[in-house]
Amino acid sequence: PTPPYLKWAESLHSLLDDQDGIHLFRTFLKQEDCADLLDFWFACSGFRKQENNEGNEKMLKLAKAIYKKYILDNNGIVSRQIKPATKSFIKDCVMKLHIDPAMFDQAQTEIQTMMEENTYPLFLKSDIYLEYT
């Protein structure tokens, strides 16, 4: 069978589908001061998954927490990678209390594209990954 670390090189999704892969990728991102990118990506997935079993109040609280931590500060690593239109859409949703499970989808896609084009290829060439393999 293919060892997991070879699978990680196939796609970002194969990497993010494996606990050890996530851990190593996060260690790399932390070195580069951009672990928030990964945390935000998982926060968006988690937010979407909670739609059926969580009350509205908790969803609102969570949406506000994600907005405050990753999007509100324009100098944050996540905020800088998200398009202004996407940010104002999310801000609108939070302000008008229009909480929708898909409200972070576009922002998540933008961060994912950035990771696919930038941090993920860098990770595959990094010492941290090469040493692990």
Binding site: I22, D39, F42, A43, G46, L62, I66, K69
Partner: peptide, 20 residues
Amino acid sequence: IDSEDDLLQECISSAMPKKK
């Protein structure tokens, strides 16, 4: 009442794959 950070952390963990 959960703090915002706890809530976020819980949300992030819920999206991670389970140990194989």
